[in-house]
Nucleic acid binder design. Structure first.
Lengths: 180, 180
DNA sequence: TTTTCTCCATACGCCTGCGTATGGTTCATA
DNA sequence: TATGAACCATACGCAGGCGTATGGAGAAAA
């Protein structure tokens, strides 16, 4: 008697729970039966909503594609402000809200062993850097320089997710100074 | 008849091949029987050299601990030159020889799901940054600033391993300019 | 109320991988 | 040349995970 549940379940529940597992154990940990156990459901449900395990992985990637791009740019823009304020807000997001041990890092770990994921990451990286570059140009930086520095800032952000380097307020202020 | 081998095998062979697999498939791919297949040997050999799978993983980590630290600093130092030349050489190593799709990234992926590995990474990061900081101080940069900029440079290097951002010669020259 | 459609449970066969037990080689040493 | 140690092969039991087949249960429509 392993505790049933009253409500039924949709595709989205499976995807949501799968993403949680991706965070905790990596893509190798995203397996059907442990997932079913967490959701208090059996495999019967899974194979109703998905063709197979690969289909779930594809759905996870698709989910990420939708939320990845707008996550940064829109959240920074919708609060308005000067380009300088936006830049600071963007750095703030990178260092707290959006990412540090979340989907962002999990996806990049997955990308190392899946070409499709790597392609999605590449697309997101490209869009984000274009956005950052735009911010820097709005600060009066020459386009060719702005592009390079946008990449540098972005690299440092990504690097902070995968290193054990202490990154305090002083470090991010220094980066802001250097690139702008 | 799945092709035997004439020579025998030592612990090191297992570790070497395991590291290859770590690169290709991540730590989850480092399994005993597939490994034995690659080495054209049976599990019997493995369980002679190692207590269990975890023991192999520990040996892999230990191997990395030995080669990780001296990899950067020593290779940069032994060629001599001015601090400026050393800095350029270090950046060059980071972008070609030592890392891009090698152990460095694989270990960091592993670190996300193993506290022991994360600790080893943290130690290596600390030593390397101290070295870079020393280089910058030798260029006449004030110690407090040198430390922050060393971390920034290091973050960008690590970031380049995990992003799909195009990093050309111009980018690394710009970084060098910014931090020194 | 019956029928139909959606969603899930149960049970099965298969494969892969872990770890153990045990016996067989090969090589050095006495 | 006999003996012991180092190294490996073979065979086993077990657990966990994948995918399928089939039969409900519950709600919605007819």
């Amino acid at each position: 008697m392993t505790a049933k549940r009253d409500t039924r379940i949709g595709r989205d529940e499976w995807i949501r729970e799968a993403l949680k597992l991706l965070l905790a154990e990596g893509i190798a940990g995203v397996r059907v039966e442990p997932l079913a156990l967490r959701l208090k459901v059996t495999k019967g449900s899974f194979y109703w909503h998905f063709k197979d395990r690969a289909a779930l992985h594809e759905a996870m990637l698709e989910h990420w594609r939708r939320i990845a791009t707008r996550a940064i740019a829109e959240r920074v823009d919708q609060a308005g402000g000067t380009p300088r304020e936006k830049l600071r807000r963007l750095i703030g997001f990178g260092t707290s809200g959006v990412a540090p041990g979340t989907l962002e890092t999990a996806m990049r770990g997955w990308a190392r062993h899946d070409a499709g994921v790597a392609a999605a990451i590449a697309a997101a990286d490209g869009e984000r850097i274009a956005y950052v570059s735009g911010l820097l140009r709005a600060l009066g930086i020459k386009p060719s320089v702005a592009d390079v520095r946008a990449r540098i800032l972005y690299l440092a952000l990504i690097g902070s997710y995968f290193s054990q380097v202490p990154t305090g307020r002083a470090l991010w202020r220094e980066i802001e100074t250097l690139v702008s």
